[in-house]
């Protein structure tokens, strides 16, 4: 309806078209979403600047790195430190793209990640900083069991175990997945960390994931167990019933009274979790924790060098402070010499 025609209409209709790029840009953004991962090569050239340390990677290692960062920030107020925990794999994508200085990792770098780093010219120094170990436990008074097979653990608390009210109920499933299937006929009272806990995800990754994948199940535990975020309450739950079952981080189980830490057999005999068996990863429910440092950035960024020095120096106590298992003296010495020599590549 042209109520008030003026001579300007023509000029304005050109303006109308200016609104189109906004919609167009949005469409473009939606279509090119796949670019987000590999990014553009130009990112490699950008420096993190002398005053910043950018850390990403595993959410398991994240609390250690945050703890170290807080210690670092106290004496280096001018350095910007950022820590994120999107996961080891996502972290490596950023790291091999040159976007981060350090990648936290709860598993060793994979071949395709090494290739990605190489193709972008990113050289890395692999530094082992600690161990993650999960202890499975029952009550001290439970004589029926002292060693448990990995398949039995899956059968007791894996995604398919919902509704099992006795240990024996899991036997059939245990045999099916390759476990021993000789669990006692006794009530099963499970206490463990809640889903939001780091120990929960560690447990799922170490004890459940492989079995679940093989059987086409989701990598998660059964939902019907007593969950708590407080390690003390989990220990109380284990103490509260003679035939209880549960798990906590090894560092915590070591000091707990009234519980019996079980040996775990993953086909290579029963192994009791100890500092030694966790350090050499012969205990099945354990894994090494790493940080990967970008070598070139460490060479040109004094703040990054200082940060790693602190990480492997005084601040290495953060590993046990946040609940993980310290490295043995020798392994720590090895890590330190790798760093001193700036040894690149995976060990």
């Amino acid at each position: 309806m042209k109520l008030f025609p003026t001579g300007r209409e023509a000029r304005y209709s050109a303006l109308k078209i200016a609104a189109v790029p906004i919609a167009g840009a949005l469409l473009l953004g939606a279509c090119s979403s796949d670019d987000s991962g590999d990014g553009s090569g130009s990112d490699n050239g950008s420096e993190s600047g002398s005053g910043s340390v950018v850390i990403s990677g595993s959410s398991t290692v994240e609390p250690i790195s945050i703890d170290v960062s807080e210690k670092f920030a106290g004496s280096n107020p001018d350095v910007n430190v950022t820590v994120d925990g999107p996961g080891t794999g996502d972290g490596f994508e950023l790291f091999c793209n040159g976007e981060t200085d350090i990648n936290d990792a709860s598993s060793k770098i994979k071949d395709e990640q090494i290739e990605a780093c190489e193709s972008n010219g990113v050289e890395f120094i692999e530094l082992r900083i600690g161990n993650d170990g999960i202890a499975v436990m029952t009550n001290d008074a439970n004589e029926a069991i002292s060693c448990i097979h990995g398949g039995d653990i899956y059968a007791l608390v894996g995604p398919e175990s919902q509704g099992f009210e006795t240990w024996a109920a899991a036997n059939e499933l245990a045999t099916e997945v390759g476990g021993e299937g000789d669990l006692p006929d006794a009530p099963l009272d499970i206490t463990g960390p809640g889903e939001e806990s780091g120990t929960y995800s560690s447990f799922v990754e170490l004890a459940i994931e492989d079995y679940a994948e093989e059987r086409g199940q989701e990598a998660q535990t059964r939902p019907d167990y007593q969950a708590s975020a407080d390690d003390n309450i989990i220990i109380q739950g284990i103490q509260g019933s003679d035939t209880s079952f549960g798990w906590v981080g090894f560092a915590f189980a070591r000091n707990a009274d009234g519980v019996k830490v079980l040996e775990v057999d993953e086909g290579e005999g029963c192994v009791l979790p100890t500092d030694e068996t966790i350090a050499d990863n012969s205990y099945p429910l354990s894994r090494p924790l790493f940080i990967y440092v970008n070598k070139d950035k460490a060479a040109e960024n004094q703040a990054l060098t200082d940060f790693v020095d602190l990480y492997l120096g005084d601040a290495i106590s953060s590993v046990s402070d946040v609940g993980y298992v310290d490295l043995s003296e020798e392994t720590l010495a090895e890590t330190r010499s790798r760093w001193e020599a700036r040894t690149t590549g995976a060990a």
């Binding site: 840009a25 953004g29 987000s36 553009s40």
Partner: peptide
């Protein structure tokens, strides 16, 4: 995703030269 593509990746050098 738009912000990631347009501002972070394409214009990253302007909006955040020291933060990718």
């Amino acid at each position: 995703i738009l912000g990631l593509t347009l501002f972070v990746k394409a214009m990253g050098g302007i909006v955040g030269p020291n933060s990718n």
